[in-house]
């Protein structure tokens, strides 16, 4: 198995619900807590496993706003694992999930230096490195109904921009989406072969002019929405 996420940059609205759900689930999950420093002050800081950046693509008037959630890509060739001196970082052979053994980590930060995606953050409380576990304590939980055995971020996403699945299975949702939409890896030139893919925004469908009355109404409504 090669578990990972496909993230739809076309439909992501940048609501940060995935990041919040992630924090909520994982702070009491397998690698928790996710400590915060000064949480109610003016400069709160703490370990988050998922962060959302917002970019402007191209220049006005053709610009497009794209929200890009970034979490661990569970790279096939994960440098964060090979640089780890204590053996705390490891990649599971059965499903490809990259994890950190909190009992072995000495907090040297080297894995966070080796990660190009900023997916690893040092917990100011425990002094150990924290990262996305793909909600390992959810996806294999036999107590949960089958449709809930997914990462917290995927379940919570209001626009279903996050899809979880097995990239080794050509008929899984993530594999199909990746094929159909031309999913992209981030910074492929570094050669870490990240598993997660990002589905680029689609081109707007050209509306036919004229035709039926319903078509005209649709065209007018589309124009209003576009503004």
């Amino acid at each position: 198995m090669k578990l990972g996420l496909a993230i739809d940059l076309d439909t992501c609205v940048g609501c940060h619900a995935c990041a919040t759900a992630c924090k909520q689930w994982n702070t009491s999950g397998a690698i928790g807590p996710l400590t915060d420093e000064n949480p109610y002050g003016k400069d709160p800081d703490g370990a988050w496993l998922n962060r959302i950046r917002t970019f402007e693509i191209d220049a006005s008037p053709h610009s497009k706003t794209v929200n890009m959630p970034l979490s661990c890509m569970h790279c096939e060739d994960a440098a964060c694992v090979t640089v780890c001196p204590t053996g705390a970082s490891y990649k599971r052979s059965e499903d490809g999930i990259v994890l950190i053994d909190q009992d072995r980590c000495m907090g040297c930060n080297l894995c966070s230096w080796a990660c190009p995606y900023g997916a690893r953050e040092l917990d100011p409380g425990s002094g150990t490195m924290k990262k996305c576990t793909l909600c390992i304590d959810r996806i294999y939980d036999q107590q949960l109904p089958e449709n809930e055995r997914q990462p917290a971020c995927v379940i919570t996403c209001p626009t279903q921009s996050r899809v979880f699945g097995d990239y080794d299975d050509p008929d899984s949702d993530v594999s199909k989406l990746n094929r159909q939409r031309g999913g992209k890896q981030l910074m492929p030139e570094l050669g870490y072969n990240p598993v997660n893919t990002y589905l680029p925004p689609r081109n707007p469908i050209q509306q036919e002019q004229g035709g039926s009355v319903l078509g005209k109404v649709k065209h007018i409504v589309n124009r209003i929405i576009k503004r």
């Binding site: 940048g14 940060h16 990041a19 003016k42 400069d43 709160p44 800081d45 370990a47 988050w48 962060r51 959302i52 950046r53 917002t54 970019f55 402007e56 693509i57 191209d58 220049a59 706003t65 794209v66 890009m68 966070s112 900023g118 953050e121 040092l122 100011p124 992209k184 890896q185 981030l186 990002y198 680029p200």
Partner: peptide, 21 residues
Amino acid sequence: TGFTQHRVSLLDAGHSAPSFL
């Protein structure tokens, strides 16, 4: 970001105070 054909600029880093990164 994967947008290899366009100009890309950051609008918002997603947090109000400096993080570990």
